[in-house]
Design a binder for these strands. Structure first.
Lengths: 321, 321
DNA sequence: GCAGTGCCGGACAACGTTGTCAAAGCACTG
DNA sequence: CAGTGCTTTGACAACGTTGTCCGGCACTGC
């Protein structure tokens, strides 16, 4: 900038004014400055600007894994909203590791992101307290923060969705329904199990429940075990997209129970699988918009919108006549 | 930092030393400083540090769309390598828009990212010249840069893969094979068409080729048109993952040609679709590692690794006897 | 007790920008 | 032609850190 200033024969501040489109610069002077900028290939140093102004025009996004279609869709929506506000996105995957989540969040904070959107992996977010107190807004998505942290959250109606699917199965004549969920420590997994259990009532059977992270081996073993029971399940409700896909794979090529899943997935329509669909893009959009409202000064009490989910019947839950 | 210094009763610089783990601080002093840091909830302002040191420990990634599984996988790999080098990732989706690509890249540069990984959407990258000259290394992935820009590139063997699939189909008795590709302006689409055409030789028929971006309507229309020909295709080779999925959807429920696709996709195994698989994670990893080699001082000539692709036969290309 | 040696702590400048404030230039009025 | 008000420009400090350099202090060996 100094070089541009001397090249154009003006003061530093005048260059700054031109670069920022501030009023009060004579058009001829501005042209001279712009010419010098082009000639020297100058571009403003954003780090210095950030240091001076205090706003980074960057938000931090911590998700579980970008490669998971659900979080990829969510990411994309957050990015779009951020772009519309002239913000960039620093993002990182926690891999369901609380320590990594904490590290990412704190690194983002050290870089003075303007705000945070977090899909938490851990249960304790007290490490966020100083940052929140310092005025960095955060929005939790898909899962709530640990106790004592009262921030905005955007959740889906997990229990309701699970109940919806369960009732659908029952209505179609199923009475032995298995549930495959992720680790019970994961909020969504627990909520969905809860919805399943509640909707199933007296039909609920502990032996038809398996809560483990989605690996083909474990899913296959669980299904084998359940199918070997006296009264095997006629339907399986899977607690997230990955489990649905894994279960379908485990059951491929054999006559097994019908599969109904939480989360929609690519080609579910072709495979005719009934699902409870949530809208990851909407979740990301709602969270990002909430964050930007906070950034523009909204200091109301924490909000906790719950997004609806919808049953998409595709036949897989219907018992053959 | 100033507050911490006065709280601990030491000079600013001493705090800096403690924070950076520099030697030459008495352990007792260091403890006092650390206590003050904890008490005040201080965290280093990374922007100021960047301004002073010149390195941001951030790399910029421009892809086409995070929500596309191919780029999501690539992103994840880049992120892993970056994390291993203590770097964060600024990422953005260009949506196949050259102007947006340019904007993202230049914004990243203004923020002084240490390096760039770009899946280019445009054809002209002369805007990158000043940045490259200024010493910001860039690696192009999946598609090469426009003319005159000689940087590292990591590409897949697009033509070879397409030829592989085509020969597979021919070997299984197909002589009327259609090709559905993305816009011909997209490098990979053009290369794959080229491989297809070359491998097909005299069997190539212009009427069985459609190069359009993957929308269900256009794909359906193209297929309908082809299937209405005198000698309709017995197989369709789709030029990328999205087109494969779209074609499968367009053909769902009717007796149509066999579908073989470029790019693997979730559940391709269950659907029994033969594909030419590339490894997005590997592509991302190779690109990121190349970038970090540049960042650690490797100034050798630009490298252009070409990653192999592999045919995964799953039956969909075989003519019924 | 004194010079020499090492270690530790601190003052200061610099990174590149922007906000504040004051001054200079100019046209216009009375 | 002085006075007024507006526009345009510039000098300076500050943002929070780190690199450089220097001074003070304790410790050693005589």
């Amino acid at each position: 900038m100094k070089d541009v200033a001397s090249a154009a024969g003006v003061a530093l501040k005048t260059v700054s004014r031109v670069v920022n489109g501030e009023p009060g610069v004579h058009p001829a002077t501005a042209d001279r400055v712009r010419a010098a900028i082009d000639r020297l290939g100058y571009s403003r140093n954003e780090s210095a600007r950030v240091l001076r102004r205090g706003r980074t025009a960057t938000i931090g996004l911590v998700i579980e894994d970008v490669a998971d279609p659900f979080y990829a869709g969510l990411s994309r929506a957050v990015e779009s909203v951020a772009a519309a506000h002239g913000c960039l996105l620093l993002s990182g995957s926690s891999s369901e590791d609380a320590e990594r989540e904490r590290e990412l969040v704190l690194t983002f904070c050290a870089r003075r992101v303007d705000g945070l959107i977090v899909v938490p992996a851990g249960e304790d977010h007290s490490y966020l307290r100083p940052e929140l107190d310092a005025g960095t807004p955060a929005v939790f998505v898909d899962r709530p923060p640990g106790p004592g942290i009262d921030v905005d959250t955007v959740l889906a109606d997990n229990a309701g969705g699970a109940a919806l699917a369960t009732r659908h199965l029952v209505a179609h004549g199923h009475s032995r329904i298995a549930f495959l969920g992720d680790e019970p420590s994961i909020f969504t997994a627990a909520r969905r199990l809860h919805g399943f259990r509640t909707a199933l009532g007296h039909l609920y059977d502990e032996r038809l429940v398996c809560m483990r992270s989605p690996a083909l081996d474990t899913v296959r073993a669980a299904l084998d075990r359940m199918l070997a029971l006296d009264r095997p399940p006629t339907a399986v409700f899977t607690g997230n997209g990955r489990l649905t896909v894994t279960a379908l794979r485990a059951l491929a090529g054999r006559r097994g129970p019908a599969v109904v899943g939480f989360d929609d997935f690519e080609l579910s329509d072709l495979l005719g699988v009934t699902v409870v669909a949530q809208d990851p893009a909407r979740m990301g959009r709602v969270a990002a918009e909430l964050l930007f409202r906070r950034l523009s000064g909204d200091t109301g009490p924490a909000e906790h919108p719950v997004l609806p989910v919808g049953l998409v019947p595709r036949g897989s839950g219907e018992l053959p006549p």
